[in-house]
Amino acid sequence: MRREEATTRETVRERRERGRKRQRVRRLALLVSFLLFPITIFYFSPVLIIEGALEGVVVASALVFTIQFLLALVVRRAWCGWACAAGALQEFEADAVSKRANLGWRTCIKYVIWVPWVCSIVACAWIAGGFTMVDPLAGIPGGVSMNSPLGLPIYFGIVTLFFVPNLFLGRRAMCHCICWMAPFMVLGEKLGAALHLPQLRIETEPDRCVGCGKCELACPMSLPVECLLQAGTIGDAECIQCAACADACPKDALKLRMGR
C-alpha cells in the first residue's frame, strides 16, 4: 500500500512538472511573438487587406488569415493561446492586474465588426475586378513593419487598444471583444468539427473534478471551466487550447488531446 501511494505521489509530481514546463514553453512562445510584433504587425493588418483588395492584390494579412482558418480546422484557436502577440500582451498584463473578464454579450462585438469588414473586402475586390496578383510584401517595404518612424503611431495605437480596456474589462477582454482574427479561427473550428476532422481539444473526466476552482483561476480567457467540463470536452468557441486549466488541475480531470 505504501509503495502504491509513493508511486501515485511520484506520478502526480511528474504530471505537475510536465504541466509547468508546458506553460513555460507556451509563455516563452508568446513572449517571442510579442517581441517580434514591431516586425510582424502589418502581417495581421485589417487595413492593408482592404487596400490590397482595391488593387486586386492578395497581401500578407490575407494569406495569414487564410492560414489561421486552415490551421483552425485541426488545432482550433491554438494560435491565440500559443502564438498571438496581442494575446501575449494581455496575458502578461494580467500577471499584474488579474481581473476575470465577465463580458456576456460583448463577446459578440467581434462578429459585428468582422462581418461588414469582410463584406468590404469582397466589395473592394469586386470593384478591382477580382484578385489578380499575390504580393505578401505589399505595403510592407523590406518585409519589416516598423521600417520608418511613421509606423510607430500605428504600433502604439494597437498596443494601447489591446492593453488599456483590459484594465477595466478583465484579462484577454480584447480577444473576446474586438479581435478581427478570432472569427476566422472560430469558423475554421466549426467547419473542422462538421467534417469530423481530428481536433486539438481539452478533454475532461467530470468524475475526477473536486470543484477546487483552480482551472477557472488559471484560464486566461476567464471561462467557466468547471461548468464546461461536465460535457466531456471544453467546446466553448472562446477556448484557446492553451491547456492552462489542464496543467492547473490537481486531479488530472482535464487533458489536452487530439481527437474527434
Rank of each mutant, 00 (worst) to 15 (best):
Gly129Arg: 06
Arg201His: 13
Leu195Asn: 06
Phe156Ala: 11
Ala96Gln: 01
Met133Tyr: 13
Arg13Glu: 14
Phe168Met: 14
Ser45Asn: 07
Met258Trp: 15
Val75Ala: 08
Gln199Arg: 11
Met174Glu: 04
Leu89Pro: 00
Cys175Trp: 01
Ile158Arg: 06
Glu226Ala: 12
Arg22Ala: 12
Lys21Cys: 04
His176Thr: 01
Pro38Cys: 05
Met146Lys: 09
Ala101Gln: 04
Val75Met: 02
His196Pro: 00
Cys209Lys: 07
Ala194Thr: 03
Gly211Met: 05
Glu17Asn: 02
Gly139Gln: 05
Glu189Asn: 02
Glu51Val: 11
His196Gln: 11
Leu103His: 03
Thr233Tyr: 12
Leu228Phe: 08
Leu54Ile: 04
Gly211Glu: 08
Cys245Asp: 01
Phe37Ser: 02
Thr11Gln: 13
Trp105Asp: 01
Arg171Leu: 08
Trp126Arg: 10
Gln90Trp: 04
Ala182Lys: 09
Gly211Thr: 08
Arg260Glu: 09
Arg208Ile: 09
Phe69Cys: 03
Gly188Ala: 08
Cys84Asp: 00
Val47Phe: 15
Pro198Asp: 05
Gln68Lys: 05
Lys214His: 07
Ser33Ile: 04
Met146Gln: 13
Arg2Thr: 06
Leu200Ala: 07
Arg76Cys: 09
Ile154Ala: 13
Glu17Lys: 07
Leu31Tyr: 00
Cys80Gly: 03
Pro224Asn: 12
Leu217Met: 14
Cys177Pro: 00
Ile140Lys: 05
Val59Tyr: 06
Val64Trp: 12
Ala193Lys: 14
Gly129Asp: 14
Thr160Tyr: 14
Gly104Thr: 03
Ala96Phe: 15
Leu28Val: 12
Lys190Gly: 01
Val32Phe: 11
Arg22Ser: 10
Arg2Cys: 04
Ala29Gly: 11
Val112Trp: 13
Ala246Gln: 01
Leu161Met: 14
Arg9Gln: 15
Phe42Leu: 15
Asp252Pro: 02
Leu73Met: 10
Ser45Phe: 05
Met133Asn: 10
Asp135Val: 12
Val225Met: 15
Val64Ser: 05
Leu191His: 07
Leu137Val: 01
Met181Arg: 11
Val12Leu: 14
Ile140Arg: 02
Arg106Gly: 08
Ala53Trp: 04
Arg100Thr: 10
Ile50Leu: 12
Arg13Lys: 09
Ile202Ala: 13
Leu187Asn: 03
Cys245Thr: 03
Gly232Asn: 13
Ser120Leu: 15
Glu14Lys: 09
Cys175Val: 00
Gly130Trp: 07
Leu167Val: 00
Val112Gln: 11
Leu197His: 11
Leu223Ser: 06
Met174Leu: 14
Gly139Glu: 10
Ala246Leu: 11
Glu189Leu: 05
Leu71Met: 09
Ala94Pro: 09
Met221Arg: 07
Ala125Leu: 07
Ala53Phe: 05
Thr160Val: 12
Gly213Pro: 00
Leu167Arg: 04
Phe65Met: 03
Leu36Arg: 08
Val75Gln: 00
Val47Thr: 15
Ile41Phe: 14
Val159Pro: 00
Arg100Tyr: 05
Val164Leu: 15
Gly151Val: 09
Cys80Asn: 06
Thr66Trp: 10
Trp82His: 14
Ser222Glu: 06
Thr11Cys: 08
Arg260Trp: 09
Asn147Met: 06
Cys245Lys: 07
Arg24Gln: 13
Ala53Asn: 07
Arg77Asp: 06
Gly170Trp: 01
Leu217Trp: 05
Val97Gly: 02
